[in-house]
Design a protein around this nucleic acid. Structure first.
Lengths: 207, 207
DNA sequence: GGTTCTAGAACC
DNA sequence: GGTTCTAGAACC
């Protein structure tokens, strides 16, 4: 293995440990070479681990293995035979294989605080969204009020226009009767534009 | 200790284990009696644990302790003296005290999936809120359109009324000129109600 | 990045 | 509720 490679210290030490024939009594490659076995857990933890790491706890060793994506190899019981409780522990990683130290650089330490940060962001999002909902809801209420006012005003306007048109028609009739010709001009000298003409080409939906 | 009490099996076994003078060599009360010590972790795990539990793993024992709220007692290093790595492990719980088995019933196993459920609920809330926001937003857009339409219609109506009033006024003048008296009645025989009278007591805000 | 204590989650 | 494997988080 290249010692100047970018392989983390833990992986380099683990590789050395498993490769080293002197410690094969306690930790070694499996038959297939795609996993490693710890044969005497107690002795391995107390005697071998401190020679490579700053502790002698199997738990810390396993924590590191999991941190780098190693998985314990479960020995499924084939039928009746009960799995021996004190058998060797076996760990495996797709890029940790006998004789293929070039794969080691593919093993990545799991990065922390991805989920905690996500949760915090989610919390902030939640607050922002709630504030936004309340804001939109308030505006909607005021718009609804305004809409109701406008609608009533509008209806009143239509009624007044209806009334005014009738008055106008009656006056027209009256004037026609007395003068013989209708008056259609307003003060601007232009023919008035009726509302139904303005909206002839637009659909007016009900409120 | 009452054997018919509602104390979980783990706590009952742990209490027995710590109390039992025969195992004091491996697990016993601390001097003050407010914590317990495991003196020879390796022997304790492999020889004592399986006599009380269905395993011989210190990790499983510690997992249970944590599950019931026990905390490891940390031995702070006073200054220069380095803490011995292989000293006894010590665990403590406010309701686990020498000679006070009546307190045991206060020790509660931590219930699981409180946080996961919270997160799931939060996720569901988030989805519902987002859907709600989109719904309200859509409605707001349609109301805005409707409001714009009504506003323009309203303005056109005001203009037409203005025109009609002018026409009416001119006609009045004309009729007055020719007949000597004004015509104010519409076809219903009632006096028309002008829009400014309807809204005299209401403030009309701008859109 | 390493070590330690505690917790989550799956399985029994 | 117990056991096991893995992960979170704090501290170094």
């Amino acid at each position: 293995m290249k010692h100047n490679s970018n392989v983390p210290a833990f992986l380099a030490k683990l590789w050395t440990l498993v490769e080293d024939a002197d410690t094969n009594e306690f930790i070694c490659w499996s038959q297939e070479g795609n996993s490693f076995l710890v044969l005497d857990e107690q002795h391995f933890a107390k005697e071998i681990l401190p020679k490579f790491f700053k502790h002698n706890n199997m738990a810390s060793f396993i924590r590191q293995l999991n941190m780098y994506g190693f998985r314990k190899v479960m020995h499924i019981d084939t039928g009746i035979v009960k799995q021996e409780k004190d058998g060797p522990v076996e760990f495996q990683h797709p890029y940790f294989k006998h004789g293929q130290d070039n794969l080691l650089e593919n093993i990545k330490r799991k990065v922390s605080n991805t989920r905690p940060e996500d949760n915090k962001i989610r919390q902030e999002d939640l607050s922002q969204i709630l504030a936004s909902v309340h804001s939109v809801h308030s505006k909607q209420e005021s718009i609804d009020l305004r809409l109701g006012t406008l609608k009533r005003e509008n209806e009143a306007l239509w009624r007044e226009i209806s009334d005014l048109r009738q008055i106008h028609a009656h006056q027209q009739q009256l004037i026609k009767k007395v003068s013989g010709e209708p008056i259609l001009m307003n003060s601007n000298g232009k023919k008035p534009k009726y509302i139904h003409q303005i909206y002839d080409d637009k659909a007016i939906c009900a409120v």
